[in-house]
Design a protein around this nucleic acid. Structure first.
Lengths: 244, 244
DNA sequence: TCAAAAGTGTTGCCCGTACACCCATGT
DNA sequence: ACATGGGTGTACGGGCAACACTTTTGA
């Protein structure tokens, strides 16, 4: 952050507005209809229905204008806490969006944050405008679904502002980091079976693994607790993320 | 970029200032003292000596306040063109820095851009305050050197603002992307030998390769021209980056 | 002839993949 | 008994690292 010699009165010029937008992802469990089969997991994202201009009645990412005395992370947690009480969130800066016309009113620059929670900790929100959308990732497209069967295809910009683009970039980041970091554990509960972890990988990467190979791939990142998940057939060992 | 319902007059609140800072990297050639040896390459970064407050007389990254009618990229190219005429620059957004106290005067948020050039295209600058510093990357630290033997250790913050941190992050990004993208060609001339490319990899990653293995590693990213570099001993095939 | 670099071939190891097989459970 | 998932072993192949060797040049 340097400046030209001429810029001495730095508060004395017109500034863009600055907002923070949140991509909050979580995993939902969907019990199986067949008692002999595992339940399905879904990747979800939190959206808010805008009942104000601009983009009134569109779905968009929950965000807020940044205040002078708070950092991005503080803005971000403030928003999420106003909407629903949350804790233990994994946060990571995604990208800063600056298209000049991205907001029809005036120049607004937005810093997007990627946030992950394990959904067990979600206190129900009293904001009727909030909704968890299922994120269906495939090679060709990303489609969001709400619980009433409404579909939003991210290739057609049906969301507010450039939020479709932001979500696509967020999914891409998630896909990349799942492969080489521990980011996936931000979506898991403290204890989980290998099959559950595998399902989450498969959801995010739109790709199937085999049990044996998946176990070897993750072996050095997890360690067994000595407890079992019995809600199924043969009890499955519960694992947790390896310390250090 | 959403907001609370209450925020209707969006220009009617105090906003942080917004700047763009540039990490401009290039490769310098240093001819060998021994005629029987190859010359050395160095990674360099462009810094500017601040002759104004704050951090007067400190070195810092060249940057500027963003104007209402320009995007980050436009701010970035404006700065670099004001300082020295450049073209064909590779640009990539690095990160957005928002520590509340990073600027002692007031709240300033800075978007950092990573930029790469091949130095052949550098028109000499008439700004005496600009200087190319050599970047020495090792496992423990990053040290900057100017041509007069002055050293700046990035572990001690001797640069303006949080620019040490920004440079460390930029080097890290460069190291990561060199391994899995074509970013390195932004630093190379149009035609280059494999040995030159190998030297640049070794500089950035602080790691040695063997010829045979390095050739195999890069084989699918480059293609031979049918020209040779004769300035050495046995002439070396010149390569260029593979199209498609 | 010799030092340095250009260029190529061989080998072994590690890791990801495919696939096969047995174990444990409750209906 | 059987379907389903849990869990483990084996075998193949590609890619990377180590290393050895030949070729080419100018002094």
């Amino acid at each position: 952050m340097s400046e030209n010699q001429q810029d001495n009165k730095i508060d004395d010029y017109q500034k863009p507005s600055l907002t923070v937008d949140n991509l909050l992802f979580a995993i939902a469990d969907e019990p199986s209809d067949n008692i002999r089969k595992l339940g399905n997991k879904k990747l979800q994202i939190l959206l808010i229905k805008r009942n104000y201009e601009p983009f009134e009645n569109c779905w968009g990412l929950p965000g807020a204008f940044m205040q002078m005395e708070e950092s991005f992370l503080e803005t971000s947690t403030r928003v999420l806490n106003e909407k629903m009480k949350l804790s233990n969130i994994y946060f990571e800066q995604l990208y800063t969006f600056d298209d000049i016309k991205r907001d029809p009113r005036t120049r607004v620059v937005s810093v997007a944050y990627l946030a992950l929670i394990n959904k067990v900790n979600v206190a129900r929100s009293d904001d009727a405008n909030l909704c968890w959308f299922t994120v269906e990732i495939s090679k060709k497209q990303i489609v969001l679904n709400d619980e009433h069967g409404n579909k939003i295809d991210l290739n057609n910009a049906q969301l507010a502002f450039d939020h479709s683009k932001i979500i696509r970039m967020g999914v891409e980041r998630l896909q990349n980091k799942v492969e080489y970091s521990n980011i996936v554990f931000g979506l898991m509960q403290k204890e989980f079976t290998i099959a559950e972890l595998q399902q989450v990988f498969e959801l995010i990467l739109d790709k199937k693994f085999t049990k044996a190979n998946f176990e070897r791939k993750l072996r050095d990142k997890i360690e067994p607790t000595n407890q079992y998940r019995t809600s199924g057939f043969r009890p499955a060992m519960l694992y947790k993320t390896k310390e250090n």
